[in-house]
């Protein structure tokens, strides 16, 4: 899922400094599960903003609503009435949610209250980590199901580099070396042979490097 993290409140307060009535729009999917922008986080941010604005003697009116998803037209339509009565919207969804609102409600002023951090999973309660960089050309079949693009600090396809020690990456003794993980996994699978083949230079054009990406499925078009 998409992982996010609430922005520092002062930064958010700066964005909405001019507004007296706002809607905080959460999202009930990814960011709710990683506790960055679900209905609970919406209500806490609303409360914190109110406290901060009262302190400045500039009270603010805040509406709250959290659709099940903020990344699809149909789901955000339920926000329409509230958006129309507000000066601005503070979105607590990922960057996709923010832009869905911008596109669906072209007149609305929409600000992000969450930093979208990565695509990953919760490793344990309160700990999330990255798993995929959406490179557009998956190589997990060759690396035992462990992504070299985001789990190796240098995105090496023929790792590990010389900085791998005791299972950790050279950048931080807290960070697992992705290539040690790949090695261990392939060893368990009895497929260490995979590591004798040179993986050729990657075609990054399917990744962000190829420009904004778009997928069209003629078979799915109406």
């Amino acid at each position: 899922m998409i992982i996010g993290e609430r922005k520092p409140i002062q930064e958010v307060l700066g964005m909405i400094a001019e507004h007296d009535k706002i809607l905080i729009a959460g999202c009930g999917t990814c960011v709710a599960i990683c506790m960055a922008g679900g209905d609970k986080e919406v209500s806490i941010l609303a409360s914190a903003i109110k406290l901060a604005r009262n302190k400045e003697e500039k009270s603010i009116q805040i509406l709250e609503q959290t659709p099940l998803r903020q990344c699809e037209w149909e789901f955000v339509d339920e926000l329409k009435d509230k958006i129309e009565t507000c000066d601005a919207v503070l979105s607590m969804a990922c960057g996709i949610g923010v832009q869905t609102l911008v596109e669906r409600f072209p007149k609305a002023v929409v600000y992000p209250a969450v930093n979208t951090t990565f695509l990953g999973l919760p490793e344990e309660q309160g700990v999330w980590s990255e798993r995929c960089g959406a490179c557009g050309n998956c190589v997990l079949d060759k690396t035992g199901g462990i992504c070299p693009i985001v789990r190796c600090s240098k995105s090496l396809l023929n790792g590990p580099c010389g900085g791998s020690q005791d299972g950790k990456c050279e950048i931080d003794s807290e960070v697992d070396c992705g290539w040690q993980l790949i090695y261990d996994r392939l060893k368990t699978l009895g497929k260490l042979d995979n590591l004798t083949d040179i993986l050729p230079a990657k075609d990054w054009s399917t990744s962000r490097d190829g420009g904004p990406r778009k997928m069209v499925r003629e078979d799915m078009k109406l």
Binding site: Q10, L13, L51
Partner: peptide
């Protein structure tokens, strides 16, 4: 933490 951030 939140209170610290907003100066309460």
């Amino acid at each position: 933490e939140i209170l610290k951030e907003i100066g309460v």
